[in-house]
Write a protein that binds this DNA or RNA. Sequence first.
DNA 1: TATTGTTATACTCTATAACTATA
DNA 2: TATAGTTATAGAGTATAACAATA
Lengths: 127, 127
Amino acid sequence: MRRAQLKLFQNLIGRLSAYDLRPAQFSALAIIEQHPGLMQADLAKALAIEPPQVVPLLNKLEERALAVRVRCKPDKRSYGIFLSKTGEALLKELKQIAAQSDQESTSALDSQERDELLRLLRKVYQA
Amino acid sequence: MRRAQLKLFQNLIGRLSAYDLRPAQFSALAIIEQHPGLMQADLAKALAIEPPQVVPLLNKLEERALAVRVRCKPDKRSYGIFLSKTGEALLKELKQIAAQSDQESTSALDSQERDELLRLLRKVYQA
DNA sequence: TATTGTTATACTCTATAACTATA
DNA sequence: TATAGTTATAGAGTATAACAATA
């Protein structure tokens, strides 16, 4: 399991490096898209990382104008996190890159096996 | 894939911690058993880590008398690495622990699915 | 007093360059 | 000069404690 995961990860890291992004940053963009306006604590939980790690990650995304922090009206301690138009466009491109990466890393499998692998993996980690 | 792997790894780390061992040390014991007398560079390659990382790992195993470095006769630069009797006995126990860990981490799968997952993972990383 | 985000810090993992001793 | 092992070091990734602003 570890070796297969490392193989997939290395391939993805290589492809994302052309965008100066890490897998966690790509995941963050995808999560923000699915939950626009979420708070940093929620993003940490969704990424399975600790809140302090979200800070530099989001800073980087904000520097590059891919995402924005918006002060919440009711609770001025927290932010709502949103994708910018640039972020949305880039994410769309990145999803294709990631799909190509998965495809290449699992080129030894036929499409039925790939589906089955995904099904089994989900079953394991969702349990 | 990453999430499933993390789940398995965390379970294994927890179980091995009772023996004050890391997964890589357990793997090292298993590799040494399969290739008695191998050199440190070979062990590094088999573990997919860099040679310098082998040094503290092996030091720890030697301190605990689980493995030994034996100076090679012909080439006095290198060592042959072997398990001690203690190491062999502990490895036997650890293999059962690891099997239990895998079983527990994949308890959502039936035994046929578990076999299939293993087959697909091998196919991915061996490609 | 509790919570959100942040800073500072440390600990692990990993990778690279330089050193030693042999060849 | 080349190689096996080692040392030193630095860079990620990850986790915890403590802090500031707000509730």
